[in-house]
Design a protein around this nucleic acid. Structure first.
Length: 930
RNA sequence: GGGCGGAUAGCUCAGUUGGGAGAGCGCUGCCCUUACAAGGCAGAAGUCGCAGGUUCGAUCCCUGUUCCGCCUACCA
């Protein structure tokens, strides 16, 4: 039978397209509750539905695919569930920008039509990233594709919301929340990014009303908020100020007086002047202090963080200032307030101050603390079990270093603000009876959203309902038909939608059919492993654990593998604005998908960011090509008889490679068990290139190239079998290349993807052949070094002699003389040095082996001499160190016996080598070159 | 402010019961040797951040310190 042959260079594009389609057509990645094997489930971290593949996705999904393909080949019933999330704020922003281009806002088109437009946009761009995942080779079960706004998942969201509400774990309340004045919505604490900046610390003087000569100096970074101050706080035990507690100060720039209060929580006596202004409506600490002391909350800003004239008036701000700052954005207002303070000699000084500025994680706008009624999840009761699950290792976080990070965050967790003032998402299942709540539902002309000046809103959409915090909601899985109190049927549904992460938190079970007890849910939940980046540990992982435990009574996954962030070659975070983005798709078409996958896996060392340099991808492209060419070589020699004899009866080279392959199989499997993708790829690389190609293929060439050897048929069998095993071992990392090669190798089955993953076979182990090989390798390398020192071309046949100190080793060398001669391209004689033509021989000693190279013709021996002298130097140094150590009574008395023995052995060997080297030196000088 | 991680060859990184410093890429020299020049062979290259301590012995353990990242935080 004639084997098909391969092209000279591996061309990935065509190959990838072919096998990618083949796998899907054959349905190899499909999971079913009725399949055999232990279930192994991974749910994909859902990318944004309208996004496209970036390098972080490529890493994340490559690692998942490696695990999935590996477990599938091991015989597990594997489900890799793909899907996307609706990315509320981000997606809405995109569509709003599209509208803006037509001079429209979402208020113009109205809620229903707007949502319809977002669905259209999702339809149009939603498949992009899924196609890109397929291109990457991701072997997801596409029949299980889910989207966070699917009907089933939306049912799960309502179910969870209602149950949490009924248990009192969801509540609505007027609180200070993080507000993005550009997105015009509330944000949760984790959606605020903190950036260190140097701000200004303003010192302002407030005078007592009764004692005009006495004043308090307060320090603030936000002077404009002083207009909303409702008290000044000092420490109750601060002798400088505590006698002032209970007195009133005049609030500059207003006609209000505010009290001086004592508060030991808010006030740090050491900081600033020890006196703090309190603005409950604009600062989180002040809000809490205000609650403690029953202070009024005076807001100053509207929803876009501009100074609101009505509110300024209510705060009794001086008329002149009111006119100046009305409708001004915060920063402008700050400067104007400062000007006025200066004018009234109230501003003492301004100093630099390091502080953290909160920004919206979606649009980087500075976030404002904003007082408004919002929905919250009472988190502590959910957090406690989620803390325990990780503490007692029911859930393992890998690498373990992140465990404390998780626990620390969970132990300090605060209630989760889940309402968002946007339209795209799961609308909150809460309704208000218009009759019972007529005083709490205010018609507002103050539409929340972008208004475009030239396009005034139609009357009908202007009427926005503002729901006061005392309104009584009806929370229900379906829209209510009659009010239980007044039997009325006029309802207003809460217009807010839920935080996208609320639905993502249910992902591991909502995607499997929960709340129904489906076969999928019963079979594939809990999932095995979650693979994700650190950036969403709190956003997503923590919340999945809380919700999973709460609603399924089980952990959502056993292992959380946290991978690194991909940075550019300089270690900078990739971003479009910096222009340092590495596009995975470009790299895939340049170097092949397998090369990119291999690079990402190789660089996934735990606990370290990945600095991705293009040369690495190129290096692994070369690796793929190397394997390809090994495949070519093997197929060129595949024609001919093949016999299967017991491995122990095969040639030395065959026994050796089987034994080495066994190590490889063990270490790749062990590395994958430990999520050490870097180690697995490194073992595979080293073995394939530097053992299999460099040595094994070279060792067997004489056997293959001449059919008269009796061993040829069994060596041919070894060659084909080991290479086929290697393809299977490598398949999870390089799925396309291995499928392409495997299909032309002799094999059973239809696709490598569904073959068994290799397992070590104890009978392949052969430590004695491995030891013998090391001796051979040392000998050949030494001979080649000699060849190089004498500047003999690789093609020039040479005459060699060899001997080892140890007679057993000499015997081994003699036994494998033919291999040695072939690999060193020499005629070779193993035996006593007396037989060597000593006068014309360059002798090199390594370990216990001496190699003699016959010197022919006129050669420059200087290189050889330099080399020998350098070796003498380093070995002498080492010997001196060992001697010193052994001479120390402390060492011989206290060190472990085998350490002492080893040192002695090493010293002995060094001394032998030094003797040989000295004699080589002497000899070279005699040969007349010194 | 607190916490975590890192600092090892030119670059990117491995390196655990403390005992002879490794890999990949790059670099140098030779070679188009019939699988592969996206290749082969050989080679150079490192006071393991700094200073102490523990130990017979420290890249490794301890303390301090510098620099760089990240997370977190209500010092106005």
């Amino acid at each position: 039978m004639t084997q098909p042959q391969l092209e000279k260079v591996y061309e990935p594009q065509e190959v990838e397209k072919r096998w990618g389609a083949f796998w899907i057509n054959q349905g190899y990645q499909k999971a079913s509750p009725t399949h055999s094997g232990t279930p192994y489930t991974i749910v994909i971290p859902p990318p944004n539905v309208t996004g496209s593949l970036h390098i972080g996705h490529a890493l994340n999904n490559t690692l998942q695919d490696i695990l999935i393909r590996w477990r599938r080949m091991q015989g597990n019933n594997v489900l890799w569930l793909p899907g996307t999330d609706h990315a509320g704020i981000a997606t809405q922003n995109v569509v709003e920008r599209q509208l803006l281009a037509d001079g429209q806002s979402r208020e113009h088109v109205g809620r229903e039509k707007f949502i319809q437009r977002v669905w259209e946009w999702k339809q149009q761009s939603g498949d992009t990233i899924l196609g890109q995942l397929r291109q990457l080779g991701a072997s997801c079960d596409w029949d299980h594709l889910r989207f966070t706004m699917d009907e089933g998942l939306s049912t799960a969201v309502r179910e969870v919301f209602v149950r949490l509400y009924e248990e009192g774990l969801i509540y609505r309340g007027k609180r200070l929340i993080n507000w993005c004045p550009r997105c015009l919505t509330a944000l949760s604490d984790v959606e605020v990014e903190h950036e260190s900046v140097t701000g200004d610390l303003y010192h302002i003087r407030y005078s007592l009303i009764d004692e005009v000569d006495t004043s308090l100096i307060v320090a603030t970074t936000r002077p404009e908020t002083m207009l909303g101050d409702t008290a000044v706080a000092v420490h109750p035990e601060d002798p400088r100020y505590n006698h002032l507690i209970g007195k009133q100060v005049h609030l500059p720039l207003t006609s209000r007086t505010i009290p001086i209060i004592g508060d030991s929580i808010l006030v740090d006596r050491e900081f600033g002047t020890g006196a703090v202004k309190i603005t409950p409506a604009h600062d989180f600490n002040d809000f809490e202090a205000g609650e403690r002391h029953g202070l009024a909350q005076l807001s100053l800003f509207d929803h876009s963080a501009h100074l609101d004239p009505t509110l300024l008036n209510e705060a009794l701000v001086d008329q002149r200032l009111q006119k100046t700052i009305a409708h001004k954005p915060v920063l402008e207002a700050r400067q104007l307030v400062v000007d006025h303070l200066k004018e009234q000699e109230r501003l003492l000084n301004i100093e630099d101050h390091a502080m953290a500025l909160g920004k919206c994680y979606r649009c980087k706008t500075v976030v404002e603390p904003y007082l408004s009624p919002q929905w919250f999840v009472k988190i502590q009761p959910l957090a406690d079990p989620a803390i325990q699950a990780v503490e007692n290792d029911t859930i393992r976080i890998i690498p373990e270093g992140w465990k404390n990070n998780y626990l620390g965050w969970m132990r300090n967790i605060k209630d989760w603000c889940i309402s968002r003032q946007i339209w795209w998402g799961h609308q909150i299942p809460a309704w208000y009876c218009q009759t019972c709540n007529k005083d709490s539902l205010l018609q507002s002309s103050h539409a929340v959203g972008v208004t475009v000046e030239d396009h005034p809103l139609p009357e009908r959409t202007k009427a926005n309902c503002f729901i006061l915090s005392d309104a009584k909601p009806l929370v229900s899985r379906t829209a209510p038909t009659a009010c239980p109190h007044c039997k009325g049927s006029d309802f207003y549904q809460d217009p807010d939608v839920l935080d996208t992460w609320f639905s993502s938190a249910l992902w591991p079970f909502s995607t499997l059919g929960w709340p129904e007890q489906t076969q999928d849910f019963k079979t594939f939940y809990p999932t095995a492993t979650l693979v994700t980046g650190l950036d969403i540990l709190f956003f997503w992982v923590a919340r999945m654990i809380m919700m999973g435990l709460k609603f399924t009574g089980q952990v959502p996954f056993r292992d959380v593998y946290i991978h690194a962030l991909v940075r550019d070659a300089e270690g900078q975070k990739m971003s479009k604005s910096k222009g340092n983005v590495i596009d995975p798709l470009t790299k895939m078409s340049q170097y092949g998908t397998d090369a990119l996958r291999y690079t990402l896996a190789a660089m996934a060392s735990p606990g370290r960011d990945i600095k991705l340099a293009e040369e690495r991808i190129e290096g692994y492209r070369n690796f793929a090509n190397k394997i390809w060419n090994a495949g070519r070589f093997i197929l060129m020699h595949a024609n001919g008889p093949v016999t299967m004899t017991p491995v122990q009866e095969r040639t030395f080279a065959d026994r050796w490679i089987y034994s080495r392959l066994n190590h490889l199989i063990r270490s790749v499997n062990a590395s994958l068990e430990d999520y050490r993708f870097d180690q697995a790829t490194s073992h595979l690389y080293h073995f394939l290139w530097h053992e299999y190609c460099d040595w094994y293929l070279e060792l067997i060439k004489p056997t293959l190239q001449a059919d008269e050897y009796p061993d040829t048929p069994s060596t041919r069998h070894t060659l084909l079998t080991t290479f086929e095993i290697l393809q299977r071992l490598l398949h999870p990392f390089m799925p396309f290349l291995t499928e392409e090669i495997w299909q032309v190798l002799p094999h059973e089955g239809t696709s490598i993807m569904v073959q068994a993953y290799p397992q070590a076979q104890a009978e392949w182990d052969s430590p004695q052949d491995e030891e013998a090989f090391e001796l051979l390798e040392q000998f050949v390398t030494t001979a080649r070094t000699g060849r190089s020192l004498l500047d003999y071309a690789p093609s020039k046949p040479i005459t060699l002699y060899g001997i080892a100190e140890d007679p057993t080793e000499t015997n081994i060398l003699r036994q494998h003389q033919a291999y040695l001669a072939h690999l060193s391209k020499s005629t070779l004689q193993i035996g006593s040095q007396k037989q060597w033509t000593s006068a014309q021989t360059l002798r090199l000693a390594v370990g216990g082996t001496t190699v003699g190279i016959m010197v022919e013709g006129h050669v420059d021996l200087k290189k050889a001499l330099d080399r020998i002298r350098k070796q003498i130097q380093t070995k002498q140094k080492e010997a001196t160190r060992l001697q010193g150590r052994l001479a120390s009574p402390d060492f011989t008395a206290k060190a472990l016996p085998d350490v002492i023995q080893e040192s002695k052995n090493r010293l002995q060997r060094l001394n032998q080598e030094l003797t040989l080297l000295a004699s080589s030196d002497q000899q070279l000088q005699e040969m007349g070159i010194a």
